[in-house]
Design a protein around this nucleic acid. Structure first.
Lengths: 211, 211
DNA sequence: GTCTATAGCGAGATAGAC
DNA sequence: GTCTATCTCGCTATAGAC
């Protein structure tokens, strides 16, 4: 009889894998916090490590380098939002309501929640072609415009669009930039802008649905 | 008779002062370029120095530290824009036309002009309360909202406002964020968004003036 | 899986020569 | 006004012990 049978080994391995996954999540949480404060350029691996209560080499054990950490952070954020709000259904009313719900979620979290700030920081830094998230952000904006375009076309087909059909590309860009425009003001001075009201008001101008 | 009389001294001093002012401008140009590429956090004084063709201590001779350099860059940019476009006249139509003209200037400069990118970078970084431009940006957004509010009220008084008067604060925030929303998309992919058309289209929805 | 130690580099800023 | 030299610090990343 062996000292450790197969079942025991497998149990231990899965327990370790779970612990490792948890650690990864903790590191990602810490990274979001750090990125939200100083951006990607301004954040050091050591800073992330300190927030996650381990050494910087501990972080590098889970993520090979700083760029991999950034990619994991962005992937997690986008997948979470995609799961929570159906912005890609193609249904116009669902898109509009999802967009408002997204703003409402952020507003209820408050200005100190790191996710919103992080996204603002990274998306600005990523304008530089040399930034590791440059391609990511290009794709992301294009995707959002695509979803908005599909939603507006769907509304046009149902006779609910308040703007000329040929203005749909223009409107898609405006919608894709709505959060970018309002978030900075809201983050700097929450009382200066009613995030949800401003988003809803703008979307109402495009579509004749009870928002 | 002295070796150097007063007039000679004064001439030399003013020549040196002019040369020094020119050098400062060159350094500021280099700084705008560098900040537009890597932001404030990601830019080193040595990088700015290399672009201006002098050593990093040469830069520090003209600006005591990195923060002073940032402040000088922002001051120059804001004063230049203020001189060129009358957004603070209080006259609604002038504000609206100036806002479109500003977008048109940026569009005509193209995506490779550093000014627009720089402003996007810095304004995002400055969301962090510890960023040296944090207070600056807070004031700036507040100022833009103030100008927009005054403009919209003026239009309301003239019977040219297309939205309810009580929605003016909402609209002021939307207008102040208009460029923030559109610039990133335009910078990442110039063909994806018609900057001027999108700005004009949005402003037309607020005011019944021939834009 | 996490650590200490260290390599190797680049940063901001100062001192002092010319 | 610009330079070289230097101080001091913090960074990314690797090697190797436990």
């Amino acid at each position: 009889m062996p000292l450790t049978d197969d079942v025991t080994v497998r149990r231990r391995e899965s327990r370790q894998a779970a612990a490792s996954a948890l650690r990864r999540e903790q590191i990602l949480d810490a990274a979001v916090e750090a990125f939200s404060d100083k951006g990607f350029n301004g954040t050091s691996i050591r800073d992330v490590a300190a927030r996650a209560h381990l050494s910087h080499t501990g972080v590098l054990h889970h993520f090979p380098d700083k760029t991999a950490l950034l990619e994991a952070v962005l992937d997690r954020a986008v997948h979470r939002a995609g799961d929570e709000f159906e912005l890609d259904a193609g249904d116009g009313a669902t898109f509009m309501r999802g967009f408002v719900a997204l703003a409402a979620r952020d507003a209820s979290r408050g200005v100190d929640a790191p996710e919103t700030r992080m996204f603002r920081m990274i998306s600005a830094e990523a304008l530089s072609p040399t930034h590791p998230a440059h391609g990511y952000m290009r794709r992301w904006y294009s995707e959002v415009r695509g979803h908005a375009t599909a939603a507006l076309k769907d509304l046009a087909d149902r006779g609910l669009l308040r703007i000329p059909r040929e203005d749909i590309p223009l409107a898609a860009g405006q919608i894709a930039g709505l959060r970018d425009g309002l978030d900075p003001q809201w983050l700097l001075d929450p009382d200066s802008v009613d995030l949800v009201a401003a988003v809803r008001d703008q979307l109402r101008r495009y579509a004749d649905i009870g928002l």
